[in-house]
Simulated assay, not measured.
Amino acid sequence: MMAEFSGKSIVVFCPRFFDYDVRIKDKLLEMGADVQLFDERPSNQAIIKAIIRLRVLPLMRPLVTHYYTRVIKSLSGRKADHLLIINPECVTPGILRNLRTALGAPITTVYMWDSLRNKPAARELIPEADAFFTFDAADSASDDRLRYLALFSAFSGSDERKQIPVDISFFGTLHSDRYAVCKAVQKRAEQIGLTTRFFFYAPSRIYFFLRWVFDAGFRRVNFNDLSFAPLPLSEIEKEMRASKAVLDIQHPGQVGLTMRTIEALDVGCKLITTNPEVSKHAFFRPSNVLIIDRYRPELDEGFFLAPYEPLPIETVDRYSIANWLRAILAIEKARDGVDT
Rank of each mutant, 00 (worst) to 15 (best):
F5W: 13
I10R: 04
D21R: 05
D21V: 00
D21M: 01
D26H: 11
G32W: 13
V35K: 07
Q36D: 06
D39A: 10
R41A: 02
Q45N: 09
I52Q: 07
L54F: 03
M60I: 07
L63Q: 08
T65S: 13
H66K: 15
V71N: 07
K73F: 05
G77W: 12
E89R: 12
T92G: 02
I95V: 07
I95T: 14
R97F: 02
L99I: 05
A102Q: 15
L103M: 05
A105L: 11
Y111S: 00
D114S: 03
L116C: 00
A121V: 00
F132H: 06
F132D: 01
T134W: 00
D136A: 12
A137V: 03
L146F: 03
L149K: 14
S153H: 14
S158N: 11
E160Q: 14
K162H: 09
V166F: 13
G172A: 12
S176C: 05
Y179E: 01
A180F: 05
A184N: 14
A184L: 15
A189N: 14
L194R: 09
R197F: 06
R197N: 14
F200L: 06
Y201N: 08
A202Q: 01
R205G: 11
Y207C: 01
F209E: 09
W212T: 06
F218C: 01
R220C: 05
F223S: 13
N224Q: 15
F228Y: 13
A229G: 10
L233Q: 12
R241A: 05
S243Q: 05
S243W: 06
G256M: 06
L257G: 04
T258R: 09
R260G: 03
L265M: 12
L271F: 01
T273A: 09
S279L: 09
S279F: 00
K280L: 10
K280E: 06
H281S: 02
P286F: 03
P286H: 05
S287T: 10
S287G: 04
N288A: 03
Y295N: 12
R296N: 14
E298Q: 13
E301M: 11
A306F: 04
Y308N: 01
E309R: 11
P312E: 01
P312A: 04
I321K: 11
L329T: 03
E332R: 15
K333T: 07
